[in-house]
Design a protein around this nucleic acid. Structure first.
Lengths: 185, 185
DNA sequence: AGTCCGCTTGTCAGCGACTGACGTAATCCC
DNA sequence: GGGATTACGTCAGTCGCTGACAAGCGGACT
């Protein structure tokens, strides 16, 4: 695997995050990001398919981790409890990326184009969750529905966890799942 | 109100739908759509903010109808049953637009950029549903959660209703809500 | 009737996102 | 050490989208 190019990629991500934060997503051009990273606009688009995706790199890793976490949950029949434990198992990864996720969330919330992309990422996360649940023997439709609800609860918990440095993920996650269960009645 | 311009707008929508269907979203340019509609590319972008939005016009109307339907549901404490009845009340509107929704759904499903936009529209539908529930006196967080689940069930029912001309919406809706309730346990 | 006004559209110039083709320097592998 | 990847730069071009200005058109007012 090419060890080179990885450094450029990281520099592009950091430059993009910093510039987006300071000047807003719309006013920053891809050429400017590339210039700060010391490369050309063309190589920016070689590393990322478009100007938005530079903020969503690592989503593939997250999906893979979630799939593995779901597969590794010890036997629990209820799909939602499986998801709850799987999400909790991803805590270390989330904490590692924490310094990036907060400014990232701010720009995304302030930029409709980025919010759209994020919704697409969330949907793909739902799909992998559904597949991972199905692989555990849960019927297709039920897996899809549980994934939808579970990911929604996960997002709700993250939404409160992200801007709050002192908060612990576990109680927020439990609270979100409980509220979701109550909302159905 | 300008009665003129409305005809151009409709022609643009129909031309876009037809061209997208036949040649795919990506290969069709805004100028081509405009040419078929008998106008210039510039006026296309005067009627629609971007190339995607031409397929999602009328979403504002749908949101308004949903808000009104939720407000008009006779007293029912459980937010999910309110939503169920509200969705059912929108049946006539959905059936009116039916000839357009099926080809539309096909292109959207085949085009990631359009799928992203649709997810954003669904999110805005969730938000209006949450607001309408809150206006009924339902606590904020509970309203948001119920809206999330309810809209998900609605989308599930629509997904089966759209490609099936003979299907009735009501049983599909009930089925979706029931499955969702069961998925929580 | 004539004029003024608001609205819609056409035209033009221009920026930024993105892509394909081609050349080049560094790196890897034998 | 030479050939093959690999990552990048350069160039040219298309398309999405926007601002500015002018032109036509109907409706209102006198």
């Amino acid at each position: 695997m090419p060890r080179s190019g990885e450094a450029v990629r990281r520099r592009l991500q950091e430059a993009a995050l910093a510039l987006y934060c300071e000047h807003g997503y719309d006013t920053i051009t891809a050429a400017e990001i590339a210039a700060v990273a010391g490369v050309t606009e063309r190589t920016f688009f070689r590393h990322f398919p478009d100007k938005r995706e530079v903020l969503f790199a690592g989503q593939d890793i997250l999906r893979a981790e979630l799939a593995q976490a779901i597969a590794e949950v010890p036997d629990a029949t209820a799909p939602l409890t499986v998801l709850g434990q799987a999400f909790l198992a991803m805590k270390p990864i989330l904490e590692t990326n924490r310094p990036f996720t907060e400014p990232r969330a701010k720009i995304i919330a302030a930029t409709p184009a980025l919010r759209e992309r994020q919704l697409a990422k969330i949907e793909s996360l739902q799909e992998t969750a559904a597949e991972a649940l199905a692989a555990r023997g849960i019927p297709h439709r039920q897996a899809v529905l549980a994934a939808q609800i579970g990911v929604a609860a996960f997002g709700l918990a993250l939404q409160e966890w992200t801007p709050n440095p002192a908060a612990d993920l576990e109680p927020l996650l439990n609270e979100a799942f409980d509220d979701l269960r109550n909302a159905v009645r």
